[in-house]
Computed example of a mutant assay.
Amino acid sequence: MSAIKPIRKAVFPVAGLGTRFLPATKAIPKEMLPIIDRPLIQYAVDEAREAGIEQMIFVTGRGKVSIVEHFDMAYELETTMGERQKDLSVLEPTRLTPGNLVTVRQQVPLGLGHAIWCARAIVGDEPFAILLPDELMIGAPGCMKQMVDAYDKVGGNLISVLEVPEEQVSSYGVIDPGTRDGALTEVRGLVEKPRHEDAPSNLIVSGRYILQPEVMRTLEGQEKGAGGEIQLTDAMARMIGAQPFHAVTFEGRRFDCGSKVGFVEATLALALERPDMADEVRAMATRLLAK
């Protein structure tokens, strides 16, 4: 068996229009909407860094410049804060090592699979991670760290999954499970939005992936699937059986920040965990619920 190559690169598909959050996203990328005081994209990048990933690849579209600027040096801001003796450590997570921030444009909205394919030249012949910023995954360690730890043992392709009540499976992609070993489950197939009575499991795919570079060859065919888009799920399904494929059941919480309710839930949940604001937020919530 050949040595397992480390995961050094992560792809962040951030070209979407964010129409569900209009008018807020008319001029601001949805990935820059803050959960308390950090934009969504920052949570995803922090998660990747915790997992030892070095290079962040943003697949962007028009109007997404602020995402790149967020991770750049802000000389005027930092100089002014320094002169006023303000604490600069709050900006530390926004600094990426020079050369480790890469962007590529997805000029046409042809789906998640197409967005990933746009990063093919940067990914090269290395395995890589994918993080969907809309899926805010909170855990200790984070979701991608849990996945990288599993990858270091089994190699191949991995996806993160979560258990949901059976009546909810029709809203998600689910796996057809094989052998289980703790949090690790062999993936025999992927089923998109099955009826709950037909679902092979209640383990849903949840926005984090580690894939071998061969997936790019599969995506090269530009074959369109559901919704007339190039689907990443279709490309992954073709790799099952040809390469090891496992799911990692995430130990933590997932917030669907692609929905307004999920966004509010994430903000409230994270605020209640912060020592600097938890008591005030809890008291505020109690007052609002009493009305």
Rank of each mutant, 00 (worst) to 15 (best):
A121G: 04
G221Q: 08
Q55I: 15
V205H: 07
R180A: 01
P23E: 04
N100S: 07
K86C: 08
A24F: 15
I130Y: 13
F58H: 03
V174M: 05
R217H: 02
A115F: 00
Q107P: 14
E229V: 15
G156E: 00
E197S: 14
V215I: 15
H196G: 06
L112I: 13
D125K: 15
G178I: 02
L110I: 13
P275T: 14
R105F: 14
P213D: 05
V148C: 04
P275F: 14
G227W: 07
A44S: 15
G156M: 04
G124T: 00
L211K: 06
F58P: 04
E251W: 03
S66M: 07
Y151S: 08
P6A: 09
W117A: 11
L270M: 13
K9H: 12
T233W: 10
M284D: 03
L22R: 12
L17F: 00
R105H: 08
G252N: 01
P29Y: 09
T249P: 04
M239E: 05
V45P: 05
I210Q: 03
E83N: 15
A74T: 07
M277G: 05
V123W: 08
G182I: 06
D176Y: 12
A183I: 07
L289M: 14
L17K: 11
Q146V: 08
T286N: 06
M32W: 02
L88S: 05
G124L: 10
I130W: 10
L162G: 01
T25W: 03
G52E: 12
I53A: 00
L101V: 05
L132S: 15
K193V: 10
L184G: 06
S89A: 06
T25L: 03
M236N: 11
R287E: 07
L132N: 14
L110A: 07
K64A: 11
G227P: 11
I138N: 07
T19C: 03
F71A: 04
I204N: 00
T97F: 11
Q212K: 13
A226S: 13
L232W: 12
R238E: 09
E31G: 13
M137V: 12
F58M: 06
S170Q: 09
V104L: 11
D152T: 04
P34T: 07
Y75K: 02
E223R: 14
V169G: 12
P141H: 13
M284S: 06
E69H: 12
E54M: 05
T218S: 13
E167P: 03
I4Q: 01
W117M: 10
A3C: 03
V59Y: 04
P39W: 12
S259D: 06
E220A: 15
L96G: 00
E166T: 11
T218A: 11
L272R: 14
D46I: 06
I240C: 02
L270R: 09
G225C: 12
A10F: 00
R253A: 09
A242D: 08
P244Q: 00
P200N: 02
E197D: 12
C257D: 02
H246R: 06
E223K: 14
I4G: 01
G82Q: 10
I53C: 03
T103A: 09
P6G: 04
R253G: 05
V164D: 02
L136K: 10
T249W: 06
V205L: 13
H114N: 14
L17I: 12
T286P: 01
L184W: 03
S171M: 05
V68Q: 08
D234S: 13
L112A: 14
M284A: 09
